[in-house]
Design a protein around this nucleic acid. Sequence first.
DNA 1: GCCGTTTTCGGCCCGACTGTTTTCAGTCG
Length: 570
Amino acid sequence: MSNQELVKILYEMAVLLEIKEVAFKPQAYERAAYSIESFGEDVAEIYKKGGLKALEDIPGVGQGIAERIEEYIKTGRIADYEKLKKEFPVDISGLMEIEGVGPKMVKKLYQELGIKNASELEMAAKAGKLEKLEGLGEKSEERILKSISFLRQSQGRFVLGFILPTVRKIVDSLRALPEVKRAEFAGSIRRMQETVGDLDILVISNKPSKVMDFFMKMPEVQEIIAKGQTKTSVRLNIGMDADVRVLPPESFGAALQYFTGDKYHNIALREIAIKKGYKLNEYGLFKGEKLIAGKTEEEIYKKLGMELMEPELRTNHGEIEAALTGKLPKLIGYDDLKGDLQVQTDWTDGENSIKEMAEAAKKQGLEYILITDHTKSLAMTGGLDEKKLMKQMVEIDKVQKQVSGIKILKGSEVNINKDGTLDIDEETLAKLDVVGAAVHSNFNMPEADMTARIIRAMENPNVDILFHPTGRIIKRREPYKLDMDKVIKAAKRTKTVLEIDAFPDRLDLKDEHARKAVGDGVKLAIDSDAHSAGHFKFLEFGIAQARRGWAEKKDVINTRPWEEMLRSLK
DNA sequence: GCCGTTTTCGGCCCGACTGTTTTCAGTCG
């Protein structure tokens, strides 16, 4: 059993209870599902170690849900879920991800038309059956058809690193309008999540309609979805939806807060507001009718007894408690990296020479890079063998003399063989400044074998860093099966550094694993995995990932000058 | 069903927009 399967069941139970119009339980199940989803620890493992009591320590999980999780772990099923499912034998998850379809719609579709999944819904919509239902019309039908086809082509989420340049361009054009006093993006993009669903832009202006008119006519806009006094929604030509909201200055901080925190952060905040006798919404913090804070985020958090926290933290994973008690982490900053420890060149699958990469890195403000070309068993990249590695070291010395202001370190991205040995001999590895090791083959091993394989590599005294530890590629490849708890423990024991690969669709380690590693005193490296001179800018996304993992400057070895960084390695 | 520096019982986040029901339910974030 995996967390993922359990989370899906809990979410579906929430929807099914909502359909049955049961009060309050849906939110309870939803909260538990969300909590487990982002918990980062295997629930089965927690249960094995601490039983029911340990399950109940998970936020949002109480006695009832803990017992159902136990039932699921023991029997592979949850009787209540199956009972609900019998009443509504429909593909809840598949239907709910269609925009505009909620619990009530699922119910109506099934009861009136017997629709059980997205493709049946599509057929019914195409046959014009939906518009005959009460409460639905021609437009609802069109909208559903559109949502289904959109979902099919986009899978709904966008990789942050790939869309952020467009987002910044849009916001900059809005800022350039004379009617616009201020414009900021909020939402999951401001939180710098690895993938994002849509774009929220907040604007201060006295002339909302002018801003809206300009926005709707931007070249990046494909079609208008909704248009109102203060809010306009469009679909951008990159496939993503974008909302613009225009606000008065006195509410801007409140709106920024409201649209930046994730759902659960905001719920928690509003509950704290209520307890203090206030009301919090996107227009401000109110005592009765009176606005008492709203101009800046800081004053809102302050009135609620909290320090201002970085947007990346606002997901209700302990940041509120930390802010209330003055224990927020001092996150690594976006300018804190001095070096990049994973850089490919044209010696293997990179596009640029050692010199070009060094110069590009210097331009990016870095003080050093580590050259880490692939090794021989990765034949498709022309991986280096011992002889070529020695030759490359000579070449690096040569290039070093031709460039100034940037230190070029000698390294390698060594393949971890199936048995945990490496594909380069120890003698050669020992000559390198830094060795990164990575899995590039046999991805489909059983968890225990893969874990043992990686730990064996970490035990090698020459291996300094484990590169992209889980191998996942967002939207394309699942992580390999790996016991991260064991890997983190092994990293601690062997003093191996874990990498956050900053490539936009890798971001590997994930935030929750980074947080766990940092919590256990394991050091991180944030690397671009650059394959061309333009890739150093991806470091930003690795830093964001580290920040979402509560990492501080001291936790990341390449925030240090290169001599000091080298001394800190095993 | 969960949770507690008001509470172990009695609460549980809030507003905009759409479509279509002419007064509001459903969905979304």
